[in-house]
Lab assay of single mutants.
Amino acid sequence: EAKQAFKELLKEKRVPSNASWEQAMKMIINDPRYSALAKLSEKKQAFNAY
């Protein structure tokens, strides 16, 4: 599932759970899995759940 892949990406890149969305994006934007969720709102939702 795309959300699961996105959460795994956050874990693998060691994005701190208290990081802001902007900080997290800088760490993950170059990974192909960043595109797993098409909409930015879906990415933010998955990030907030993380």
Rank of each mutant, 00 (worst) to 15 (best):
R14V: 04
A19V: 11
N30Y: 10
N48L: 09
E8D: 04
S35T: 11
S35E: 15
Q45C: 12
L9C: 06
S41N: 06
A24S: 05
S41W: 06
R14W: 01
N48P: 06
K3Y: 14
A2G: 14
I29L: 11
S41A: 11
A5V: 13
S20R: 05
L9F: 03
N48T: 09
N18A: 07
L37Y: 05
Q23C: 10
L10D: 03
A46Q: 09
A38E: 15
Y34S: 06
K44Y: 04
N48G: 07
I28T: 09
Q45V: 07
A2C: 01
A36S: 13
D31T: 03
A2Y: 08
A46Y: 01
M27P: 06
W21N: 07
K7T: 15
E12I: 00
K44F: 08
A5C: 04
Y34V: 02
E1S: 02
A2W: 03
Q23D: 11
S41E: 15
L40D: 15
A36W: 06
S20Y: 01
K44V: 13
Q23T: 09
Y34C: 07
S20F: 00
K7A: 12
Y50R: 11
K26V: 10
M25I: 12
K39C: 09
I28Q: 02
M25E: 15
L9W: 01
A49L: 07
E12C: 01
Q45N: 09
K26Q: 15
Q45A: 12
S41Y: 03
M25Q: 15
S20K: 08
N30W: 08
F47H: 08
E8H: 05
I29K: 15
L37W: 01
A36D: 07
A36L: 13
N18G: 11
F6P: 02
S17C: 14
A19W: 04
K39V: 09
A19T: 07
N18K: 05
P32S: 12
K13D: 09
R14N: 11
F47N: 03
L10V: 02
P32D: 10
L37P: 10
K26M: 09
K26R: 13
K13C: 02
L37T: 04
W21F: 15
Q45F: 07
M27K: 05
A38K: 14
F6S: 08
Q4C: 00
W21P: 08
N30F: 05
Q23W: 04
N48M: 11
A46K: 02
P16I: 03
E8P: 00
D31K: 00
R14P: 02
S35L: 12
P16E: 03
K43A: 09
N48H: 10
Y34W: 10
F6Q: 06
E22T: 12
S17H: 13
N30S: 14
F47V: 03
S17K: 14
M27F: 07
W21S: 05
K13V: 04
F47T: 01
S35R: 12
F47R: 03
F6A: 06
S35D: 14
Y50M: 10
A19F: 08
A5K: 15
Y34Q: 02
P16D: 07
S20W: 01
Q4E: 14
E12Q: 06
A24C: 10
K13N: 01
Q45Y: 06
K3C: 05
M25H: 14
I29N: 15
V15S: 00
P32V: 07
F6L: 03
I28Y: 02
L9S: 03
E42N: 02
D31E: 05
Q4Y: 00
D31L: 02
W21I: 03
N30D: 13
K11A: 14
E12G: 04
K39L: 12
A2T: 02
I28C: 13
E22A: 09
E8G: 05
K11I: 15
D31M: 04
A36G: 13
L10P: 02
K13I: 00
P16T: 04
R14F: 00
A5P: 03
S41P: 08
I28V: 12
M25A: 11
P16Q: 00
A36E: 10
K26H: 12
L9V: 05
P32C: 03
A49G: 06
S35V: 09
E1P: 06
P16G: 04
A5L: 13
S41K: 06
E12V: 03
K7E: 14
A24R: 04
V15E: 01
L40Y: 11
L37G: 07
S17R: 15
M25Y: 07
F47G: 06
K43Q: 07
Q23F: 04
K11R: 14
L10C: 06
K44H: 13
S20G: 08
P32A: 09
S20C: 07
I28L: 08
N48S: 10
S20P: 07
K13S: 09
A46W: 06
K26C: 06
A49I: 12
K11L: 15
M27L: 13
N18M: 05
L37K: 03
E42V: 03
E1L: 00
A38N: 11
N48K: 13
Y50Q: 06
Q4P: 01
A24K: 00
I29E: 15
E1D: 08
S17M: 14
I29S: 15
N48D: 09
A19H: 04
K11W: 13
K11N: 11
K43G: 04
K39G: 14
S17I: 13
Q4G: 09
V15A: 00
S20V: 05
P16M: 03
A2S: 06
K3F: 15
E12Y: 02
E12P: 00
K26A: 11
I28K: 08
R14Q: 14
A24N: 01
K13Y: 11
I28G: 05
E22I: 06
P32W: 02
S41L: 02
W21V: 07
S41Q: 10
F47Y: 07
K44M: 10
K44P: 03
K44C: 02
E22V: 07
I29C: 15
Q45M: 09
W21K: 08
A19N: 02
I28R: 05
V15L: 04
Q23L: 08
P32I: 05
Y34D: 08
K39W: 04
E42I: 00
V15Y: 01
D31A: 01
A19Q: 05
K43H: 04
Q45L: 10
A5N: 13
K43Y: 06
A46C: 12
L40N: 09
K39A: 11
L9H: 03
K44W: 03
R14A: 12
K7N: 09
S20I: 01
E22L: 05
P32M: 01
E42T: 05
A19M: 08
S41M: 02
D31Y: 00
S17D: 11
K11M: 14
E8N: 05
S35Q: 13
D31S: 01
S17Y: 14
K3S: 10
E8V: 00
K11V: 15
L9Y: 00
A19K: 04
K13F: 07
M27H: 11
V15I: 09
K39Q: 08
